[in-house]
Design a protein around this nucleic acid. Structure first.
Lengths: 143, 143
DNA sequence: CACATTTATCCACATTTATCCACTACATGT
DNA sequence: ACATGTAGTGGATAAATGTGGATAAATGTG
């Protein structure tokens, strides 16, 4: 299970080291694409299969669904890890997520998310406030 | 059953010894993540499984669910106990819970909570006052 | 076809993390 | 009261990880 968060840097050659803890589970080929809220999403080949099947099952008649699937599918790129566990972040994704030097890599069970460090910080502050609130709303979650 | 409270210290290398009484039950790998009211929550692998399944079944708005799971999952870290029963507390969790040198470790049946000692003291004083009141509210539970 | 630019592979360094061992304090039992 | 054992803390050494740079292959362009 992919969990935890790590702060890494994208070097001048657009290389990004994925956390060593994740490498075993990821394999040496991953799919990277647009994520929600301005981040990037990273899937294993197996998880990507599940994801893209779900996208294919969407009611394509709706314009919104079409544009959404286009963004995700056309945005997707298969990248391989080098011997040191680094990937190359494509320009258009780097730009989409506003990635600068410092990024945060989050494990979310079945996928990773890559955030610009500053953007993550902003998002986190807002989200942390919601934790207590949601837990109490949910009652017996036992967190 | 994880019960009782202990005051321990986090050393300069961010190591924290878990109480010897808990070690047998915890095993040598645990999950540590964000908890409510600014503490940290510690689960066994089995309990974590239960927790993360509950997260998948959340019925709140999409955006809320995303931010909540990000906090809990990305906040979570699988850590292993060293030969002396110590864990390494990740920076971002240490910061989240405002942990300084002295911390309090509480057993809450199926999980542990880690509090900054000062924060715990404040919380405890307030909570102790409320005990009688809460008990009367809980009357119907047969406690 | 030659050149320039990008992309991939490889290696080296520095920092962090993990493992190991030693010391002190407290508790227990003889 | 003393010895013994267990638990918590601190430090030292070894391994792993992340980052930067250098060199070789590939790609595209004039």
């Amino acid at each position: 299970m992919l969990i935890g968060q790590y702060e890494h840097t994208i070097d001048i050659k657009k290389r990004l080291a994925l956390p060593a803890k994740f490498r075993g589970e990821l394999g040496d080929k991953i799919i990277i694409t647009r994520g929600i809220e301005g981040c990037l999403a990273v899937y294993t080949e197996a998880e990507w299969k599940i994801m893209s099947d779900k996208l294919g099952a969407l009611t394509i008649s709706q314009a919104e669904a079409r544009s959404f699937t286009r963004m995700i599918l056309a945005g997707a790129m298969e990248v391989s890890l080098d011997k040191l566990g680094r990937i190359l972040v494509p320009d258009y994704l780097k730009e989409y997520a506003g990635l600068k030097k410092n990024v945060v890599i989050c494990g979310l069970s079945n996928r990773l998310e890559i955030w610009d460090a500053e953007k993550w910080e902003t998002y986190k502050i807002a989200a942390e406030k919601g934790v207590d609130e949601i837990v109490s709303k949910l009652g017996g979650l036992g967190i």
